[in-house]
């Protein structure tokens, strides 16, 4: 959900006029979600902190060119995602951040796992092991799906704000979100399928 300070409370005019106190308020309003995004995208606190600092340094530099067509938060997310992707690229030169999506047709999404684990209780699904399985599955998502998934399902942006943050169309966001969710479902189905089988063997 949105953080405690809504964007309506931040004056773009004051920011553009160089009002330091207003910029400090902007930082306090949005630094936590930006930091969490960095943590999720990069997986460690140091890199997340670098993304956080670079995002607001960049925002400070480019405030004058921010036209206010998107929300301030969406704009900050766009900067943060670019910072995080640059950081990933530095660490792993082979990371593919090419946005051309040759695989947006449905054929690659057809489910292959039909384990009926949906009725497992929450104390299993949200156990430490269950959360680790989920985290691993998220880490396994290809970058172009993971970024969409993180903004929409973890940061809880709307489809439109996710699209604006990434410079994608809403329909592209929707299809990537679906692919991400189906991939997570497949991976969790394998994980819980093995657990269910194991319990049957042990019984």
């Amino acid at each position: 959900m949105m953080e405690t300070t809504s964007q309506a409370d931040i004056s773009l005019e004051a920011l553009r006029a160089g009002d330091r106190a207003e910029f400090a308020r902007l930082v306090d309003a949005y630094s936590a979600p930006i930091y969490r995004l960095g943590l999720r995208m990069l997986g460690n606190e140091q890199d997340a902190e670098d993304v956080l600092q670079n995002t607001f340094l960049s925002a400070l530099t480019h405030l004058s060119s921010f036209e206010g067509r998107s929300s301030v938060l969406t704009w900050l997310y766009r900067i943060a995602v670019n910072e995080a992707l640059m950081s990933l690229r530095r660490g792993k030169p082979e990371v593919n951040i090419d946005d051309t999506d040759s695989s947006d047709d449905m054929d690659n999404m057809l489910p292959t796992q039909f384990v009926d684990w949906g009725a497992l209780p929450e104390n299993v699904l949200l156990s430490v092991e269950g959360k680790h399985a989920l985290d691993r599955a998220i880490q396994n998502l290809p970058e172009n799906l993971r970024t969409v998934f993180l903004l929409r399902d973890i940061q809880e942006l709307s489809i439109k704000d996710t699209a604006d943050s990434l410079g994608l169309t809403e329909s592209n966001v929707k299809i990537r979100l679906l692919r991400a969710r189906l991939s997570l479902r497949e991976q969790l189905s394998v994980y819980y399928g093995e657990r269910i089988n194991q319990e049957k063997i042990n019984d």
Partner: peptide, 18 residues
């Protein structure tokens, strides 16, 4: 039915674990 149930459950646990 299983795909729909487990997809819904996947999204639920993503939100709950957040």
């Amino acid at each position: 039915r299983i795909v729909v149930d487990t997809t819904r459950r996947t999204v639920d646990i993503v939100h709950a674990s957040n």
